[in-house]
Design a binder for these strands. Sequence first.
DNA 1: GAGTCGTGAGAAACCGTTTTATCAAGCGTG
DNA 2: CACGCTTGATAAAACGGTTTCTCACGACTC
Lengths: 346, 346
Amino acid sequence: MAKAERIRIYDVARVAGVSVATASKALNDTGRMTDATRQRVKQTAAALGFRPNAMARALTQQRSFTIGLLTNDTYGRFTLPVMAGINEALVDHGVSVFLCGIEDDAALAALHVDAMLDKQVDGIIATGKRIDRRLPVDLSGLQVPVVYAFTEGPDDAVTLVSDDEQGARQATEWLLGRGRRRLAHVTGPQSFASVTARARAFSAVAGADAAIVYGPWSEAWGHEAVAQFWSSDATRPDAIFCGNDQIARGVVDALRERGVAVPEDVSVVGFDNWEIVAAATRPPLTTVDMNLKELGREAGRLILELAEGKPVEPGVRKLPCKLVVRQSCGGDALAPRNKGEALQEV
Amino acid sequence: MAKAERIRIYDVARVAGVSVATASKALNDTGRMTDATRQRVKQTAAALGFRPNAMARALTQQRSFTIGLLTNDTYGRFTLPVMAGINEALVDHGVSVFLCGIEDDAALAALHVDAMLDKQVDGIIATGKRIDRRLPVDLSGLQVPVVYAFTEGPDDAVTLVSDDEQGARQATEWLLGRGRRRLAHVTGPQSFASVTARARAFSAVAGADAAIVYGPWSEAWGHEAVAQFWSSDATRPDAIFCGNDQIARGVVDALRERGVAVPEDVSVVGFDNWEIVAAATRPPLTTVDMNLKELGREAGRLILELAEGKPVEPGVRKLPCKLVVRQSCGGDALAPRNKGEALQEV
DNA sequence: GAGTCGTGAGAAACCGTTTTATCAAGCGTG
DNA sequence: CACGCTTGATAAAACGGTTTCTCACGACTC
């Protein structure tokens, strides 16, 4: 099969019996001409299967319909849904995404950014695996707009993060709503901004005397925390809100091994809604979903507006989390309003 | 800070006191000129911070230094390492990657492919979550080269897959090498080509009478399989080779709950080396790594050669797996030669 | 019937680079 | 000293579109 020569606007013009200029204007719905002419050109183009060369187009217009996505999460559970959301928001506008994984390597990052700039991207979205860390590259002062999603940016930048406090509040209120009264919070290292934000919200709702313990983001830490709590009758909670799903899984496993029934004796809530962990836990975890895909969609929308020159208010935008109810807290009679939707997404 | 105008080759030429043509040739090490002139132009370009406009360049040359990556794995554990490998192979050549997630949606796929073609990609790499399924889009007869990685392509295509049989053989031999004699294989649905390939290799090494049971790819199935085996004294194996790490984790958990010691009483091997599962299992899993990153690197190298017009032999290339030794089989006195390297990558 | 105006369409310039064709100068040669 | 050859450098033509500017023509006005 011979490689079909790609047909150019020149061909369309010739076949339709008009000039190249007229053809261009007809196809872009610009300029003035008879409606008949416009239709004729369009039909000819369709018949010939004409597709404009995006390179040539980008050269004259100031848009390449291309954006760059920079991440240092190669490419873990946080970046993945964010990417999916970005793509979803942009595909309808004919915008393609350059994916660049930079492994906390400043030189590699600079290399990728230069390559993007050379390729005339209309904007750059920076994303990472941690909300309170910056990528190892300076994106300020670039000639293209930048949006930061799930990673820290300069103060005057457009930044999107999930609302950790709101998510933690919702989880805690849910536990209280199920009649639990002795709440505990088992979470990650205090050096994470997310950890302190969630802990703050937990304290505000559960009361200042509710226990909070910090440790690594691992299943093993979940086991250890349970061991600590159950070492004395006085410290045993009837509900445990965990900083992520891995810790929650460790907690649930440890409780089962001790003969403590989940959710009958103790309710457990996780954080992240990491399907593979949350759904495999026995019983499956009720957990907080950070809505990362929606965060990605929003990032896509914003970078698009910026690329089109529309003004976007700089600052940090917090997007709400939602609780996904499974079985680790018991029946769902008191499920929050968004429950149905949440389960659907699972 | 005023947006600095991007400087063009025209500026370089003017400052260096040469024509645009000379400047172009100087910078690309083509054409003929005094070495002094060439150096002067290069220094001027460097001093001015000149970066060529990739769009303009792509218009004249026949290369855009851009490739498209199509995946229906949005974007799970298989595509991720493959992508990382591809990027790694291409970044040094100044090639950027368009990432397109198509959710088994033929219309979306066609949309993305058209967008890629419009953007003059130099090639397309198709990848997926399953080695024996095709993407819902026909990539044959395109005017750009295509490489299939971890997904099925046409017979006359360039295809890269991991060597399931070799991986399974290595795992099985490893169990025999540790003195185990009653081997069993707990794996996924028989409808997967990977499953039958691994089972075939397992049988060949462990003997035709070694048990093989098929089920879903889940932890729960691991539990259930153990229950079946332990229902009778006659059927209890002393080593279990699992079809993936999730099943293996279910098996290990089930054994522990029954008071069967791993690895003392029973050795367990997984498949996939999915860090998050393999490392969190107690004890951590010895498992087969499909070397997906290397597979991605190879895909990158191949698409590059094809884009440069070099001939590449079509057909299926199988890349070897390697065993990653952790603790679920006991000490590592008999570790295979690649053990050191394997552990390093963990 | 001459002047004005709105309208449809095309010629040409342009985007930023590469590449081809051309050309002037220098240099040895017969 | 005229001739051909090599060499360094440039002008100009691509590449495939968009956009600005110009123009011819018919209708309308007075």
